[in-house]
Structure formats: structure tokens, C-alpha cells
């Protein structure tokens, strides 16, 4: 047990720090960099990382670190929208299926089966072709892909909690279904759902950057992380920093979100 504690804590602290820094980037980017994310200095184009330009500069002389900092808000808010869509839609479906049972349960779970049968990226692309390109649409598309996971989890939680003695006692003492749901079932299912939300947050950041890379997310010159990497792609031979550094930021954020979700799952 002690060994486990010693082995886990530092990693978790680093993970929370990474997430805190990135959230700060999204809220107050100007505290971290004084440069303009959109206007470049042509004379300083394609410079390697240095003291003046931590992550180097891109093809039209924009400071890459500034662009990554200002891009945080797009990735984070996109992931936030995606997780909200999945959480609200999935939990609603799951709770409905789990508490009503019968035909509703069967219909909802078949729908969930369909969502699971279509690969995540194809599902997201189908929704994007429907809604059109853009940051919010990409986020919604990614969120719909996580509805199935939330629905399955919340359904199984509801079914589990419903069988508990105190819930039976609540029904026995005359409580209505919706009262029991809000009073007992939802609060007791919450921890597991929050753990999944943290995991989906990391997945959503990955998926949104993928859609951004493919060109279906925010339009240029938005400094969205996937788009930054896509733009740096033309300079792989000469300017490695344009693709490597933004990618490392994405990896760090996703790793941290996964690490935190793991810790949340453990405390259950």
C-alpha cells in the first residue's frame, strides 16, 4: 500500500499541474506570452526554438509558443462541449433505460449498440457532413461518439443502485420513481460517471485535434492544436519544431487527463 502511494502521487501532481497550466492558458493567455498569435514578423520566419521564441516561429514569422497558448481555449472548450454532450445525452438515455426497463430499455440499448458499431471517427465524420465544418460542430460530433459509453455506464450504475436495500426501502415507504432517482440513484452513480468524464475529456482532445488536422474543425488562421500540426506538416524536412512541439503539448494534456481519470476511478 505504501509503495503504491509513493509510486502514484508525483505522477498525479504533475498531471494536475499540466491541466491547471493549460486551463490558465485558455483563460488568461496574455499572462504567458506578450506576442500576437495571428500577426507574424516575416523577418523572423522559421526560426528554431530559442530564448525569444520558446517553440520557434512558423512560416510567416508567428511565435509558435504564443499560438499554442492561444490554441488551448479551442481544444479545451471543444473537449468541454464534447464531454457535456456525451455526459448529458448518455446519462439521460442510460438512466431512462435503467430505471424504466422493459421496452424503453431494449430500444435505448439497441441504439447504443448502433453507436458502438460505427467506428468513432466515422461517426464523427457523418455528423460533421451533416452539421458542416467548424469548432463547435466538431466538438458536438465527438460528443455524440461518447454518448454510448456514458449511456452504458449510467444504465449499469442505475441497475446496480436500484437493487440496493435502501432504494427498495425508499420505494417501500412510498417514494415515487423520480424522487428515488434524484435522491438516491443519481448521487450514488455520480463517481463512476465523473471518472468516465475525465477519461472522455482526454479522448475528446485527441479526437478534436484529429478533426482539426483533417481540416474539418476551426478554419485557419485559428491556432487550434490539430490545425497547427497540419500547417507545420509542409516544413517537416527543415523545421521539426512546428509539428513536434504542439504534438507534445497534446500528448502531455491527454496523458494528464487519463492519469486523473485513473485516480478518480480508484477512489471509488
Amino acid at each position: 500500500m505504501r509503495r503504491r502511494l509513493r509510486g502514484i502521487r508525483p505522477g498525479l501532481v504533475v498531471a494536475w499541474t499540466v491541466i491547471a497550466v493549460v486551463i490558465a492558458w485558455a483563460i488568461v493567455p496574455w499572462l504567458f506570452t506578450g506576442q500576437d498569435p495571428l500577426a507574424g514578423v516575416p523577418a523572423e520566419k522559421l526560426q528554431a526554438p530559442s530564448g525569444a521564441h520558446l517553440f520557434g516561429t512558423d512560416a510567416i514569422g508567428r511565435d509558435l509558443f504564443t499560438r499554442v497558448v492561444h490554441g488551448a481555449v479551442h481544444s479545451l472548450s471543444g473537449a468541454f462541449v464534447a464531454v457535456t454532450v456525451g455526459l448529458v445525452g448518455g446519462t439521460l438515455l442510460g438512466v431512462l433505460a435503467g430505471s424504466l426497463g422493459g421496452a424503453v430499455d431494449a430500444v435505448v440499448m439497441r441504439l447504443v449498440d448502433v453507436l458502438l458499431a460505427i467506428p468513432g471517427l466515422l461517426l464523427a465524420l457523418s455528423i460533421i457532413i451533416l452539421l458542416g465544418f467548424g469548432t463547435v460542430n466538431a466538438a458536438i460530433a465527438v460528443g455524440v461518439g461518447s454518448v454510448a459509453a456514458f449511456a452504458r455506464l449510467s444504465r449499469s450504475e442505475v441497475v446496480r443502485v436500484r437493487q440496493a436495500d435502501y432504494v427498495e426501502a425508499a420505494f417501500g415507504s412510498g417514494a415515487r420513481l423520480h424522487a428515488v432517482l434524484f435522491r438516491h440513484v443519481l448521487p450514488n452513480s455520480l463517481t463512476a460517471v465523473v471518472g468516465l468524464a475525465a477519461l472522455q475529456f482526454g479522448t475528446a482532445i485527441l479526437a478534436i485535434s484529429t478533426l482539426g488536422f483533417l481540416g474539418y474543425g476551426a478554419p485557419p488562421p485559428t491556432p487550434e492544436w490539430g490545425l497547427l500540426i497540419a500547417e507545420g506538416r509542409n516544413y517537416v524536412a527543415t523545421s521539426w519544431w512546428l509539428t513536434v512541439l504542439p504534438g507534445l503539448v497534446v500528448v502531455a494534456v491527454v496523458l494528464s487527463a487519463n492519469r486523473i481519470s485513473h485516480a478518480l476511478g480508484r477512489t471509488r
Binding site: T210, I229, T243, G247, N258
Partner: peptide
């Protein structure tokens, strides 16, 4: 062993498109 155990967690956190570009960078350029 701990390091190898952690590796799959890193693998799932890497954007596939970025991995491809980095591989091109390292092995081709």
C-alpha cells in the same frame, strides 16, 4: 516492468496523425 506497463497508456495518448508525421521526420529526414 513499471516503465513497460506505462507504455500502452502513452500509446493511446498520442495523436495518430502526429505519430505519422514524427515517424516521417525521424526515419525519412
Amino acid at each position: 516492468r513499471q516503465g513497460l506497463r506505462a507504455l500502452p497508456g502513452v500509446f493511446v495518448s498520442v495523436p495518430v496523425f502526429w505519430l505519422g508525421i514524427v515517424l516521417i521526420q525521424v526515419f525519412s529526414f
